[in-house]
Measured scan of single mutants.
Amino acid sequence: SLTLTVRGEEAVRRWYKWAQAHNLEVEVETHGDEYVLHIK
């Protein structure tokens, strides 16, 4: 499992696509303009 902090929706989309390509689940938490992604 992997936890990432990114800024901006574009980065979130990029990681989301990456995770889907690897059959992984993604949980997204929003903290202001930062997003915490939990990839499992």
Score class of each variant (00 low, 15 high):
40 K>L: 09
1 S>Y: 13
17 K>V: 12
2 L>K: 05
13 R>E: 14
28 V>F: 07
1 S>E: 15
39 I>H: 00
23 N>Q: 08
6 V>Q: 01
21 A>K: 10
2 L>H: 08
24 L>H: 04
7 R>W: 12
32 G>C: 02
1 S>L: 13
14 R>T: 09
11 A>C: 02
16 Y>L: 15
26 V>R: 00
36 V>R: 08
16 Y>G: 04
7 R>A: 08
36 V>M: 06
24 L>V: 06
9 E>F: 12
25 E>L: 13
9 E>R: 09
9 E>V: 12
6 V>I: 09
33 D>A: 08
39 I>W: 02
6 V>G: 02
37 L>H: 00
8 G>L: 04
22 H>K: 06
21 A>D: 14
28 V>M: 10
10 E>K: 08
5 T>R: 14
4 L>W: 04
32 G>Y: 05
11 A>S: 08
37 L>E: 00
19 A>N: 01
16 Y>M: 15
35 Y>L: 05
35 Y>I: 08
35 Y>A: 03
29 E>Y: 11
40 K>E: 05
24 L>I: 07
7 R>I: 13
23 N>M: 09
10 E>D: 12
26 V>K: 00
11 A>M: 10
5 T>N: 07
28 V>G: 02
13 R>G: 08
30 T>W: 09
28 V>S: 04
20 Q>M: 13
29 E>F: 12
17 K>I: 13
10 E>P: 05
12 V>H: 02
11 A>I: 06
3 T>E: 07
4 L>H: 04
13 R>N: 13
19 A>D: 00
14 R>M: 14
11 A>Q: 09
23 N>H: 11
11 A>W: 06
23 N>R: 08
19 A>L: 08
3 T>I: 13
4 L>F: 09
28 V>I: 14
33 D>S: 08
32 G>A: 06
39 I>L: 08
3 T>H: 11
4 L>D: 01
37 L>I: 14
18 W>P: 00
29 E>K: 08
10 E>Y: 07
40 K>R: 14
23 N>I: 02
38 H>Y: 10
6 V>D: 01
2 L>A: 05
18 W>V: 02
17 K>N: 11
14 R>C: 08
38 H>G: 02
24 L>M: 13
33 D>H: 08
12 V>N: 01
2 L>Q: 06
10 E>V: 07
12 V>D: 01
27 E>H: 13
14 R>N: 10
14 R>W: 15
16 Y>C: 07
7 R>H: 13
18 W>E: 01
3 T>G: 04
11 A>L: 09
12 V>K: 06
5 T>I: 15
27 E>I: 15
21 A>M: 13
35 Y>W: 09
40 K>G: 11
22 H>R: 08
31 H>V: 12
35 Y>H: 06
